[in-house]
Design a protein around this nucleic acid. Structure first.
Lengths: 111, 111
DNA sequence: ACTAATGCTACATATTATGTAGCGCAAGGG
DNA sequence: CCCTTGCGCTACATAATATGTAGCATTAGT
């Protein structure tokens, strides 16, 4: 991570979101606070090492709080960020549809 | 990549965007078509191996075109996606500001 | 005291990224 | 015609990251 690259906030964010599992965890946490092990399940069985490391990152970045009785939850800032992800949902639908059509045109098999 | 996880379009997108360099490359390509080597520079000297692999991915996902005389460029779909990134820019500004204030309160050194 | 669930750590293995050298090709100049 | 220059891209050894599995320490319930 070069200093120049990471000086712009957007670059810091892109670095963070480009770290494996970060977006997935944020997305899954949007459905409410949860325990360590439940989060593991929501993320499809991700390893505890990874969850632990990523949660440390997210807490350090002020996106998640650890609130012992209730487990982990998004901070206000974290919730704002995840809100910005929602347009991606609709875009992704169109994208997959067009991509699969193209595969079909090319004669590839469909699932 | 489990089948269940990747069945939802948003999960496929999150997987893609969570791959190292993908967001960065998309972001940098928003400033116009460019050559292989210029893209390397825009991304701060990323290795050619990586650029090559990621461009293959992005082309396969219909987000980038290879148009030999002019090099690489975003597809219409790719441009739409990068447009959805722009709100992140403003959010990132606030985020970094708040994060750095917090560090200051805690007595950490500033750059 | 026993059981079960929790957050989390240890660590060997597998996967992925980085850095560097350089190939084959095309365009331009001498 | 040869020589340089820049191009897209490949090869491959090394370094960094992720995965999977076992299990420890703690807490809550019975």
């Amino acid at each position: 991570m070069t200093k120049a690259a990471s000086s712009r906030p957007i670059m810091q964010l892109i670095d963070l979101l480009g770290t494996k599992w970060i977006m997935r965890i944020l997305w899954e946490m949007n459905s409410g606070p949860c325990t360590f092990r439940e989060l593991q399940d929501r993320c499809g069985g991700i390893s505890p090492t990874m969850i632990n490391n990523r949660m440390k990152d997210l807490i350090a970045e002020n996106l998640v709080d650890k609130d012992s009785p209730n487990g982990y939850q998004l901070t206000a800032l974290g919730k704002e960020l995840v809100l910005l992800f929602s347009p991606l949902n609709q875009w992704a639908e169109e994208w997959v549809e067009k991509r699969d059509n193209k595969k079909f045109e090319k004669g590839e098999s469909q699932s």
